[in-house]
Nucleic acid binder design. Structure first.
Lengths: 158, 158
DNA sequence: TATTGTTATACTCTATAACTATA
DNA sequence: TATAGTTATAGAGTATAACAATA
């Protein structure tokens, strides 16, 4: 069925001018795009029992070496209280360790374990074909270009 | 401070190959990009007292004419129960009406009111400069290209 | 029997505040 | 006084299930 009646033509003036997409279009598209990508990546993570926020922390640790929980929380836009539980989960699975920081006993230095390292690599390799399938209907080079533009979009200060 | 120690070099093999970005990079970037866009658009909506999901429904109604609540829920990826409250809010504000559908008394036809129409236009116009500022640091044409690629990314079936 | 809309409920995620131990 | 980590709690958002009316 369709409940659609005739479109109110006076409304069109704000949306139907060519090249004048809704200022909300970008945000709504980004939400759908994220939902689609996240659903695929969650599948890649399922065998490891990890969730996206856990793996995001592991990626940050690979990129930056060991980090404090505060640094991880800031980098991943979460609050420090949420990060405690993420690290708890990863530590319970033996993927990271909390180590003392010489010179400041308030802080933990979070480091990947050997097991965390191999799990990271396994997930990483298993996710590659999933990513490929995710962008397989785009034209050649568009996926890389998308990554490039999104990187600069998310860093307006650079 | 920085808790960083030396990076474990054996880890790099999965991430440091040029052109071999993490298969998770796209998903994580999309989340950040969405958060940034959503924060800006929420500002645009503040004067109207609406939230993104309300305005998303209004946009759908402008694009498709009147829709049933089921159609709106499907189109916006929400469940029908959540949509009930979105329509409740919009109806309380006098922006939409629930109208009977001739031939099927189970359904409501959701239609924008005159007030909803003018509010839509106001928000739309107020959001334009916010969108411009959001993409102002991108190169000319990149924002349109981004919209184009995201549209196709979110519609793998087309 | 299936579907629309509704209501109530449960669950997840996030955000906030308070507490400790250190600085 | 300020900060890192922890804990407990409250709130928002979402998902699920049951229900009534209708098909």
């Amino acid at each position: 069925m369709t409940a659609s009646g005739p479109t109110v033509t006076s409304l069109q003036r704000a949306t139907d001018r060519p090249g004048d997409a809704s200022p909300f279009a970008l945000g709504l598209l980004l939400r759908r795009a994220h939902d689609r990508a996240a659903a695929a990546l969650v599948e890649a993570l399922r065998p490891s029992g990890l969730e996206l926020r856990h793996f995001a922390a592991m990626i940050a640790l690979v990129e930056h070496g060991s980090m404090s929980q505060r640094e991880l929380a800031d980098a991943l836009l979460g609050d420090k209280a949420s990060m405690v539980r993420v690290i708890d989960d990863l530590e319970d699975k033996g993927l990271v360790r909390r180590e003392p920081v010489p010179g400041d006993r308030r802080m933990n230095s979070i480091v990947l374990t050997e097991r965390g390292l191999s799990v990271f690599d396994e997930v990483h390799l298993a996710a590659a074909p999933i990513h490929e399938q995710l962008v397989s209907h785009l034209r050649p080079g568009e996926a890389d270009h998308l990554l490039d533009v999104l990187t600069r979009f998310t860093h307006p200060d650079l």
